[in-house]
């Protein structure tokens, strides 16, 4: 079924066009640097975007608004535990992932036990995570251990390490979605929750695992971002709320759920960085940049829907 329709192609074409348009201005100079920067910054958007994609796949009304707070909390706690001591990178990673696990379980508990709509549950809970981050951080800026900072900003085979992490995660997510029973269950739940339950899919377990997965992805992104940028800041996750939703939709996943698209998220994450740097290199001011970004997002959604509705 997915053989003919390739919704992910759009995101990659758009990313390529933005890349070409930027280089058109410099007559091809700086192509390597631009691609490298796009892969570095795109990696964070891709990681949180894949998490958001899994949640959105669960069906209408499912979305995680606590991603920024989870990133901040995980980054803050991990750096606090590591305290810049060398050799503590794995300990920090464990703390970050455990934070993600806790956040995911807490979110799902609110959704399942209190039957809150996910939008409201994750929104209200994110305020609490934000407070926890403020309380544990106390305005201190702790540097990541040196080895970890080197890893986060380093490269392998000319590709940034963070991009390798995003790529491995994408591969795992794709295999899980397309080749495992769990992925089939997730898609089935997103297409019709009632039918899935009647067919014997453990829908609540699937939902729980998905909300944990998105929080763990966000926590990993927060840990890497804090190491990448030399410390955790309280607003470090802020831009990833809209970003995570935007890359899912530009990537060609259906916002109505039941359909997800891993390669599209990667292309969209590159695109979101490239479009901003394209506008930057054309000397657009902050206002113009924002207006054009919004217009491009809407244009892509319209183009994707026109293509989809063609018989």
């Amino acid at each position: 079924m997915s053989g003919f329709a390739k919704p992910w192609l759009w995101a990659w074409i758009a990313a390529g066009a933005a890349f070409a348009a930027t280089l058109g201005l410099t007559a091809g100079r700086g192509a390597g640097e631009l691609a490298y920067a796009a892969m570095s910054f795109g990696a964070f958007a891709a990681i949180v975007g894949m998490g958001q994609m899994l949640v959105i796949t669960l069906g209408p009304g499912n979305v995680d608004l606590s991603i920024p707070a989870c990133m901040t909390l995980a980054g803050t706690l991990a750096l606090k535990v590591m305290g810049s001591d060398p050799g503590t990178a794995w300990l920090g990673l464990a703390v970050a992932l455990a934070t993600g696990l806790g956040v995911g379980l807490a979110n799902f508990a609110l959704i399942w036990l209190l039957r809150l709509p996910p939008i409201i549950a994750t929104l209200a809970a994110s305020l609490i995570y934000q407070s926890l981050a403020i309380w544990s951080n106390r305005g201190l800026r702790i540097k990541p251990p040196e080895g970890l900072a080197d890893f986060a900003t380093g490269r392998m085979l000319g590709v940034p390490n963070v991009a390798w992490v995003a790529l491995l995660l994408a591969l795992a997510t794709w295999v899980m979605l397309e080749r495992s029973v769990w992925g089939r269950w997730l898609l089935a739940s997103g297409q019709n929750l009632r039918a899935a339950r009647l067919a014997g899919v453990p829908v609540q377990a699937v939902r729980a695992a998905t909300y944990v997965a998105v929080a763990v992805f966000a926590a990993l992104a927060g840990y890497l971002l804090a190491s990448f940028s030399g410390g955790a800041a309280l607003n470090m996750g802020a831009e990833y709320l809209l970003m995570s939703i935007a890359v899912v939709v530009i990537g060609g996943s259906s916002i109505a759920g039941g359909n997800s698209n891993v390669p599209g998220v990667l292309g969209a994450a590159l695109f979101m960085f490239l479009v901003v740097s394209m506008l930057n290199s054309y000397g657009a001011g902050a206002g113009v940049k924002s207006v054009l970004t919004g217009a491009i997002i809407i244009a892509i959604v319209i183009a994707a829907s026109a293509r989809r509705s063609r018989p």
């Binding site: 902050a286 970004t293 919004g294 997002i297 829907s305």
Partner: peptide, 18 residues
């Protein structure tokens, strides 16, 4: 055009903000 409102309004938020 049968578009998802959540995405269109997300895009428009960039436009209004700009």
């Amino acid at each position: 055009l049968d578009l998802p409102a959540i995405v269109v309004t997300l895009g428009m938020s960039f436009v209004w903000g700009g």
